[in-house]
Design a protein around this nucleic acid. Structure first.
Length: 254
DNA sequence: ATGGCATGTTACACATGA
């Protein structure tokens, strides 16, 4: 089973790239973040033409997540249960015996911002929910844009980013709390190239200079992590014209 | 040192992202 996460930064703009990527890579489930589409505008037919089904929950202008899959998902959940949130940031569904949860963690803006407090509260709510999901679904994968670089080796310049949003200790603690539920950062199950990142700023030639962060992750429950064969970052789409600022992350599970 | 770039809006600048 091949599962993927990709923050596309507008599915309207990136649809041709997503279509090409799906055709070339044939994942079983592709999790998208920042679709920035209201549900009535979701390109269901373009996706269906490739043999993929769509689940999605979106809103105008911001956020929005989707699951594109070869087989249909069941038991879809479109929000963190019992937690008030205007923003469309999570989508869960079951594919065979694998529970897949797509997340778009709030950015936080800066550690001084109200949005940072919202981010930390959101992560607490996510943890509580994931704990329950793990009990119900031992074969659980949580994929998405976590907007957290877990360790200094996930940051091109740790000194520059020290205590900044995406790298601050409270955020890294929240990430470790998710792992403590019994989830593994699948990327770190394998030997990886140094300076591996999933996001680069559009400005200052950041991609060319590899000034990036690893903030998009695939977390796997123990039952899945033991069968994980690979986890790789696909940098190719970041090289295209009009790329998303994030790259896909791909995990293969036996 | 606070720039720079991309996206969406009902706009002809601003908010948001990371």
């Amino acid at each position: 089973m091949k599962i993927v996460t990709w923050n596309v930064n507008s599915l309207k703009v990136r649809l041709p790239q997503v279509v090409n990527w799906l055709e070339a890579n044939q994942p079983d489930v592709l999790c998208l973040q920042e679709t920035k589409l209201q549900d009535e505008f979701f390109p269901v037919n373009d996706i269906a033409a490739l043999g993929y089904q769509s689940l999605f929950i979106g809103q105008k202008t911001f956020n929005g997540v989707a699951l594109l899959s070869k087989q249909s998902g069941t038991d879809a959940v479109t929000a963190i249960p019992n937690w008030e949130d205007e923003q469309k940031r999570v989508l869960a569904a079951t594919y065979g015996d694998v529970r897949v949860i797509c997340v778009y963690v709030p950015n936080g803006e800066s550690v001084e911002s109200d949005k940072y407090q919202y981010k930390l509260k959101w992560l607490t709510a996510l943890k509580e929910w994931l704990g329950k999901e793990l009990q119900q679904y031992p074969r659980l994968a949580v994929l998405g844009d976590f907007n957290i670089a877990p360790e200094d080796r996930d940051v091109h310049d740790p000194e520059l980013w020290k205590d900044q949003v995406l790298c601050s200790e409270p955020e890294r603690n929240a990430f470790r709390e998710l792992l403590s539920l019994g989830l593994a950062d699948s990327f770190r199950l394998f030997e990886q190239p140094e300076k591996s990142y999933t996001w680069w700023d559009y400005r200052m030639l950041a991609f060319r200079r590899n000034r990036g962060l690893r903030i998009d992750h695939i977390l796997l429950s123990n039952a899945l992590a033991g069968n994980c064969k690979s986890c790789v970052i696909d940098k190719e789409p970041r090289k295209l014209e009009r790329p998303s600022d994030h790259t896909p992350v791909v995990a293969e599970i036996a």
